[in-house]
Design a protein around this nucleic acid. Structure first.
Lengths: 212, 212
DNA sequence: CACTGTGAATTGATTCACAGCT
DNA sequence: AGCTGTGAATCAATTCACAGTG
């Protein structure tokens, strides 16, 4: 069962394919092609075929891909087949907005529990969930088999939260706090909103030449 | 003044360097080295030196880099020297949280104006700003020389908003809506929160081998 | 005969290794 | 002596080009 080293870029494209496949399936389109998906996603058709063949052969030569079938294969690859229940740490501005965010678009992802270290926040109801104290984290993570968490706490608190999450058995984390977090045995995706805008500034100052 | 094609990955690392340099400067550390920054950021020292030399030679051989000076050079490269005033479109859950987000950490970035298409939202006060109608967009963008915008509206509304932003002269956009947006002459960074979590699911299902 | 799947070629980014200053 | 700056070498990802197949 050894993994053959799949590029992270490939993994990040799979949800894009999934989004388009779901859209096609909703519209009762049963078959698509790498060229059609290329048009919809902006990636090249070869790239799409190459990405998919890392995981197997899902198409029919001369025909294309069954939209519903390919969609469910991608769900299986990503580990979304049984839905993804996520723990959210931090019930501040950003945390609250994330909890209320319409994850429904793709109902694979659902916020399953919200935690906050502040006793004043505990018990508060957000998006149908009651905010829990950090002490309940290990129990709730275990009970719900939660493998993914979102950190939306201030930078100073973030490393401690990451430690608690790994101790509780969480395997992947999306970190919104402005610190670079990392730890052995967990996959951490850092997403600092300030940095996102700072790098955008670069593209806003330099003039573009004619587009490709 | 031709640009020599700088990797996007390099641009995205510059804000990380800047964060550490600011931290060092705050702590009255005047000199650092690529090896020290490597330790703090997790990137390799060669990578850091290579990234910086795309833009010039900012260090002193045998010594290192002046923290404050390198910081201000990176600000200049990114176009942050005079601060970055950003327009936010959409005053829903996510938009409101973004407006209230503590951009203060690095005070380069500031939300300068908030817009919403919903007349019921217009006039509402969020984070000290009054929500404006979309009709005021061209005027406000021009007056404040706004070059960067954040889209936090539903997917259906997003393409129209992008059109209005480009018409108003905005040059770079961070798009939180779950649609892949693109247009000629604007740099669009798509950031779909559902997709971020979907790709994390992949890393949560497959077991890790021992870390590098 | 259209479209997938895939080795081979290419392009791009990272790492190596060392020459050049201070 | 120490650390930067950089061409050359390596490694990774993308694109090309076509053989394979329903």
């Amino acid at each position: 069962m050894r993994k053959k080293k799949i590029p992270e870029a490939t993994i990040r494209r799979l949800p894009v394919y999934l989004r388009e496949l779901d859209e096609l399936t909703r519209n009762r389109v049963q078959v698509t092609s790498s060229a059609d998906l290329a048009g919809r996603t902006g990636f090249s058709s070869e790239q799409i075929r190459k990405d998919l063949t890392y995981f197997g052969a899902f198409g029919t030569r001369g025909v294309g891909y069954d939209t519903a079938l390919l969609g469910s294969q991608i769900r299986r690859i990503l580990g979304l087949s049984r839905g993804l229940k996520v723990a959210l740490i931090g019930a501040g501005n950003l945390g609250t907005a994330l909890a209320r965010y319409s994850w429904e678009t793709h109902k694979d992802v659902v916020i399953g529990a919200i935690f906050d270290a502040d006793p004043a926040k505990v018990g508060e109801r957000i998006a149908g969930l009651s905010v829990q104290p950090m002490s309940r984290l290990p129990e709730v993570v275990a009970e719900n088999r939660i493998r993914v968490a979102v950190i939306a706490v201030p930078a100073v608190a973030a490393p401690g939260v990451l430690r608690q999450l790994t101790a509780a058995g969480v395997e992947a984390v999306l970190n919104f706090s402005p610190t670079k977090l990392s730890a052995l045995g967990v996959f951490v995706q850092n997403l600092d909103l300030t940095m996102e805008l700072q790098s955008l500034a670069y593209y806003a100052s330099g003039e573009e030449e004619g587009a490709k």
